[in-house]
Write a protein that binds this DNA or RNA. Sequence first.
DNA 1: TATTGTTATACTCTATAACTATA
DNA 2: TATAGTTATAGAGTATAACAATA
Lengths: 157, 157
Amino acid sequence: MLNKEAPILEASGVGLRDAAMLAWLHMMRCVLKIQRREANTLARYNLTLPQFEVLSHLLVTEGTTQQMLADHLLVTKGNVCGLIDRLAEQGLVERQADPDDRRANRLYLTPAGRDLIIQVLPTQRAMIRDLLGALNVEEQRTLLTLLGRLDRGLGPL
Amino acid sequence: MLNKEAPILEASGVGLRDAAMLAWLHMMRCVLKIQRREANTLARYNLTLPQFEVLSHLLVTEGTTQQMLADHLLVTKGNVCGLIDRLAEQGLVERQADPDDRRANRLYLTPAGRDLIIQVLPTQRAMIRDLLGALNVEEQRTLLTLLGRLDRGLGPL
DNA sequence: TATTGTTATACTCTATAACTATA
DNA sequence: TATAGTTATAGAGTATAACAATA
């Protein structure tokens, strides 16, 4: 049945709101709201969200190449180059020539970069945990299961 | 118990990955991947994601003021001003002086803007439904319930 | 005084594409 | 030839802050 309140929109399919669409809208808004807050706190450390993600990733996988990092971040290698430039200027990240492949750079945190991210990460995580506190642990696990499957289903890009 | 593989990281709390954190990471990646695809298709219509969101919103709530739109999009009124400038240049949106409050502009889709968004919206929605197809309808409803509650719990910002 | 909208500034991110040096 | 990285270009989005007109 079409909604009598907006017959034209409904007939055109424009007003349709199924579970998938509504879930998507909420997902976007959740991410937007949470990232805004993250960006606010990161700004105190002179970090942007993408920069924070680079540091977090390097903490776990030091020695990645810029291309590998680009694949992980889902951006182009040209963008990664600029990103690393800015982090290197701040003395947080270092490029080291790869002895086995002289085209490639291996990326490492500097001691300052490591100190910074180790200081910032727990703060960010506490914020996330707090913000997701509207759901109990059982619900968070369900969310994890569904989003994990969705993420994998979406592929690398 | 600490993980023997990375005792230092674990002891510092840096390596912790509870359900909330993992759910958050997957949520970010899902939104990133889906938005990248959306941006690709929108580019064919000379639209960015924020511009698409403005048009979609105006289709449902024509006559909003720029400040109201800013609140909805969670950005500043200065940004909305530029956003509307670009959409007006393309002849998709119109500002009309509010007779009751001469400070305010009321925003309306032009016929061209309405035609465009009515054409684009179903395409985008089909894409979303397809991308969320990794989950069955039951799971999509569960996701909707959880994300809806989370969204409301996060408040306006 | 507070609010709506505009303007100016500055920065980051992003894509595209041409270029280099290696492989 | 293909790949890793760099550089150049261009555009959009974002925040901040100062300003004008109106409430």
